[in-house]
Each structure stands twice: as C-alpha cells, then as structure tokens.
Design a protein around this nucleic acid. Sequence first.
RNA 1: GGCCCGGUGUCAGAGUGGUUAUGUAGAGGACUGCAAAUCCCCGUACGGCGGUUCGAUUCCGUCCCGGGCCUCCA
Length: 463
Amino acid sequence: MSIFKIHNTLGNKKEEFIPIDKDHIRIYACGPTVYNYAHIGNARMAVVCDLLVRFMRSIYPKVTYVSNITDIDDKIINASLETNTPIKELTAKYEKVYNQDMGELGVLKPDIQPRATDHIKEMISLIDQLIKQNNAYVSDNHVLFNVSSYKNYGLLSGRNKEDQIAGSRVEVADYKNNSGDFVLWKPSSEDQPGWDSPWGKGRPGWHIECSAMSEKTLSLPFDIHGGGLDLTFPHHENEIAQSCAAHKFDDPQDYAKYWIHNGFVTMDGEKMSKSLGNIFLVNDLLKKYPGETLRLSLISSHYRQPLNWNSKIIEQAQKNLDRIYRILKDNENISIDENIHVPDNVVDALSDDLNTSKAMFEINLIADKLSKSNNKNKSALKGELVSSGKILGLFQQSPSEWLKYGKTNNNIDSNFIEELILKRNKAREVKNFQEADKIRDELTNINIEIEDTIDGTIWRSKN
RNA sequence: GGCCCGGUGUCAGAGUGGUUAUGUAGAGGACUGCAAAUCCCCGUACGGCGGUUCGAUUCCGUCCCGGGCCUCCA
C-alpha cells in the first residue's frame, strides 16, 4: 500500500499521514453557516472533504466524518430581519437546501452533522473553564479569549502578532484588552436570540462552536481538520487556541493533527465570496448542469490550487464524463470483476495529497484500454474504472441514463421523436437525403442528437 | 507593513533535471449518402533575465505579473 501524504497547513508542508488510531480515523470540517444558498466555493470544500473521506474509507476500516451546521450567527440574525423570516425557519430551510445540493454533487452526508444551537451547554462549559484558567476574561458583558495566554498562537497561520499590527485593518473594540483577543460570548438584546449563561443572556462567538462540537463528537486529539483556505486565520487559529488552552495543551497537534485547507473558487481570478457578490449558487448551477459534471469540474484541479470558475471548465468536465460513460455504455453487458480493486496508479495519485488531476489521467488511460480491449480483460478493466470512479464519486450512474439515450430533456413526446426518425430512415432508403437531413435538422432544433449505428438509429438528448 | 500561494500548449491541468501526461478545442485522415459516435494522426508549451549543470520548464537568485490572508468569508 502506498503511503498517504497530506499537505499539513500546520508546518506548511506535505507529510506522511500517520493515524492516531488506525482502526478509527476521525475527521472534522467546518460546515456552512445556514442563512443563504451555498455557492460553488462552499461546495468545493464539501466535495474535497467528501473525496478525502471516501479515500480514507478505501484505506482504513472505520472513518468518522463530522461537519457542523452553524445555525447561530449574526449573519443569520440579519438575514432573518431582512427577509422577515423566523430564525428557526430560515436555518432549517437552508440546512435542508445545503444537504440536498451537496447530495446532488455526490457528497455523502457526514456521519455526524452537529448543530451549534444544540451545543450551547458544551460551549458555556468550555468558556467557563477558560475563564477559570485565566485564558479568558469578562469585559463589558462579553467574554473574550486572551490570546497572549496561549503561547503557540499563530503557529497554524504562520504569523505573529507584532508583524501584523503595522498595516492591520483591525479596529480594536474598546472592550478588548489586546487587539488579537476574540469573542467567546457576546450579549444578546431582547429581540436577539440568546441563551442564559453565567455572563447573562447572550450567544456564542463564532469560533467556540467548532471547539465544543469537534471535542464532543470526535474526542481529542482527532486526525484531520479541514475547511476553506480563508478559515485558517482567524477561525482555525482561534479554535486551536481555545481548545488547547482549555485542556492545557501546548502543541496544536494535541487538538487536531493535520490541517487541510482547500483553495478558492475564483471568478475572473478573484475570490468568489458572498460579500463580493461574484458568486454562482450551486442551486442555480444544478438547474443547468448535472451534479456529477459540477463535481468533476470542482476536482479537475488540485484542491489547494485556485480554481477559476467558468462555463468552459464545466463543458470540458461534461465532455470527459460523456466520453467515459460512452465507453461504459459500450461495455454495458460486461459484468464487473468483483475481485478488482482500485488500481495502484489511481491510489498512488490520490495518496499524493489527493492529486485528482493525476487520478483522472490514470482513469482516462483505463477507460481507453477498456474501449480498445478484446473480451479477455474487459471485466477487470471495467472493475478498475468503476471502482476508481467510486472513490472520486463519479461514474456510478447508468450510462444510458447519463447519456440520455431515448430520454427527452423537455416535455417532447418520445413517440414523436421515434416517428421523425422512422420518417428519416424511410427517406434514406429511397435516397432522399435532402428530406432526411431536413428531419435531422428538425431533431437538432429540439436538442436531439441522432447516431446511425449498425443496429439502427439511436437518439439522445444533448445537454 | 507582515505572512502565504500561483504564472505550463486554444482552454483546463498534472508532472519531470535529459524520454515533454491527460482531458478539451482545433488541423488532417479513416468510417458514413452526409452527419453523429468511434478510430488513426498532427501541433512540441512551461512569465522575463541571470546563475548552477554536459543538459533546466523542473534547482538557485532576481525581476515582472496575478491572487489570497491579516475584518465576515469555504
């Protein structure tokens, strides 16, 4: 078995993955704040983590993947006010939409998907402990974490406070002792959601939820912590500080051993983000493209590289999938050799910090071999192709369904199409090609593509 | 100001100190009445400038360009 190498943000280098407990791998990833539709950048994180989990499951007997739902946050409060929707209704809606959309992208649901609001008690007790240990202080109804009380603060993001101050844009709130201190608990007014606490009615700060939930669901330390690149600082840095301080750990790896961060999806080279407004919503994209196409687009480049999102990469992914599904269709009646596992070349590629582009290269080679092979090894090759696809979350559909052979996209009656094809073939028999081509144009206009094969004319809906 | 990441053929995108993936687009050919699909085949790319080397896209230096984090963000 090849060694899995993973780029660890902590230390900023690729290293060998050594599990804490090889019988049980534990992974946590920061999930969405549910106040709006997820954009394709949010989806990248979900797809990358899903891929990691699928790959880990192919190596280790047991993997627990936890990804939270943040359902209390000021953005949610604002969205609730703006849309005049009760918070519970709003968060329930977008949590559901998120899971549906990610499901369409082939993202398996996390084993545990804890909600922040279900863990207020744990957060309060963690904060309480931090105060007792002088890692946190109460100021003006807020509870703040004292950054200078954790000596390894900044290790993850590779920055130190002194260097930051000069050009920093941080406005220091007057209740903070030091500029880097961050909120653990903040007061809520009457009309804001809040929970009783030793520090009055209030709500948690952003970072504390992940510390509370990861510890509760996975226990410490766990193997891999993931999220988008922009969470490195401050979110993950603060998470480490809180959890390590609370447990008197010096080493961040006593909290989580490996930290992975996916790069951004960009638009014209610029980061896609809700605040910039240059976003593509997954929900909208799914109306135009199959989820699997979007998934392949998202993993077509290495997860740490920026991914510039445009219609061209989607088309290219679609074409690549069409090609492979065509080969699978040509081999529809070949039974899969059940003894076949994912080929070494594919495993090796993924073992190299999830090199999906390289894995796709290997997969294309297998597909090519399958399409050109004689009967002897078709079963093995098909097994290799399908099992490789399974790790990537691809090629698990029926090829005919995918290629839409005999299926209409719109509400055109398939009998109507069959009639036109019959008419065309009659015209061809008497060599009336002008008439035949006219009928074909008619079909093209309604997005139907025809192929004349040895076994007759077949048709499919083009995307 | 501090820290970080990129710049590869039409596009996407790995990778490597010398044999120069793969997908996509395009040229040419086979097949087809014509297409579609398929097959064959072609283009020889690595930001600029120096250096190390027999040899660098790959290592080093430097410069240019783009992006990110330091504030909510995947």
